[in-house]
Simulated assay, not measured.
Amino acid sequence: MHGPASPGWLLVALCAATGAYCLLRLRSSVEEQRRTAGGEAVMGFGMALMAVPATVAVPPPGAWIAYAAVFGGAAARSLWAARTSAHHLHHLVGALAMVYMAVAMAASPGHHGHGGVPPLTGVLLLYFAGYVLWSGTRLVPVTAVAAAGTRSVGWGDRPELARVCRLAMAMGMLAMLLAL
């Protein structure tokens, strides 16, 4: 992505940590956690790769097209999963936003002009800003409920951490869209 290196590395770290936690959620005893964790891990790691500052590593010419293809596949999977769970609509919007950013980066590998914010970028910024505010309000208070009586809750079963993970990815998406 375009922009200064320091915030870019912070975004890489945030997205990679989010992706790593989502991998932990794949071991959850809660089926819904496992079902969404894989897609969220792909999103987190994909965002981390796309956020590497351009001043440090310039992706090969076909990388942006590969990103668009991977996230296009993720969008198709989210569209299919959305028939049973409305939460997957958010995954669909996120995957399509990643496709949009990859295509924009492939079309203009240098810095973008200062002609204002394209309408689709503006709509995505509004969506993710709203999602950040909405998901932030859902964090207070969240109680972790043990799945089996007095058994301690594992890292993959903590609903408040899953919400924090989604909030972090939405904030990362905002930062990436602003840097576009």
Score class of each variant (00 low, 15 high):
Ala66Gly: 11
Leu10Asp: 10
Ala107Leu: 15
Val117Gln: 11
Gly110Asn: 08
Trp134Phe: 14
Thr36Tyr: 00
Arg158Ile: 14
Val70Asn: 09
Thr55Asp: 08
Glu160Lys: 12
Val103Leu: 08
Leu10Met: 05
Ser152Leu: 13
Met1Trp: 09
Trp134Asn: 08
His91Thr: 12
Trp155Gln: 06
Asp157Gln: 01
Ala170Trp: 14
Ser78Ala: 03
Ala74Gln: 07
His91Trp: 07
Gly113Thr: 04
Phe71Trp: 14
Ala75Asp: 01
Ala97Lys: 00
Leu24Gln: 11
His2Pro: 12
Ala57Met: 10
His112Met: 04
Ser135Thr: 05
Ser135Gly: 05
His112Ala: 05
Ala107Cys: 08
Ala82Cys: 10
Gly122Asp: 15
Ala104Val: 02
Gly39Leu: 03
His2Thr: 02
Tyr100His: 09
Val103Ala: 13
Met98His: 06
Ala5Ser: 06
Arg138Gln: 01
Val132Ile: 08
Gly149Arg: 09
Phe128Ser: 01
Ser85Ala: 06
Ala16Pro: 03
Met1Tyr: 13
Cys15Trp: 08
Ala41Gln: 07
Tyr100Asn: 11
Pro109Leu: 12
Ala5Trp: 00
Val103Trp: 09
Pro141Met: 10
Val93Met: 15
Gly94Trp: 00
Leu79Asn: 02
Thr121Cys: 06
Val52Arg: 03
Gly154Thr: 11
Arg138Trp: 02
Ala146Ile: 12
Val30Phe: 13
Gly130Cys: 04
Ala66Lys: 03
Thr18Trp: 10
Ala81Pro: 00
Ala102Leu: 05
Met1Phe: 11
Gly110His: 08
Ala107Ser: 07
Val56His: 02
Cys165Pro: 02
Ser135Ile: 15
Phe45Gln: 13
Tyr100Gln: 00
Val56Ser: 04
Thr84Leu: 11
Ala41Glu: 13
Ala41Arg: 02
Leu139Gly: 10
Glu32Cys: 09
Gly136Lys: 01
Trp155Phe: 03
Ala68Pro: 10
Ala146His: 11
His90Ile: 00
Ala175Tyr: 15
Gly39Ile: 03
Glu160Arg: 14
Ser152Glu: 07
Ser85Asn: 15
Pro119Thr: 04
Gly62Met: 15
Met169Val: 04
Ala69Asp: 02
Gly8His: 14
Tyr127Val: 15
Leu26Tyr: 01
Pro60Asn: 01
Ala63Gln: 11
Gly172Phe: 09
Thr18Ile: 15
Arg27Ser: 12
Gly38Ile: 10
Tyr67Trp: 05
Gly94Thr: 04
Val153Trp: 06
His91Tyr: 10
Ala41Thr: 15
Gly122Ala: 07
Glu160Thr: 04
Ala129Gln: 00
Ala170Tyr: 01
Tyr67Val: 09
Pro61Val: 11
Ala69Asn: 04
Ala17Tyr: 05
His111Tyr: 14
Leu139Trp: 04
Ile65Pro: 07
Ala75Tyr: 03
Met171Asp: 02
Pro118Thr: 04
Val93Thr: 06
Pro118Asp: 10
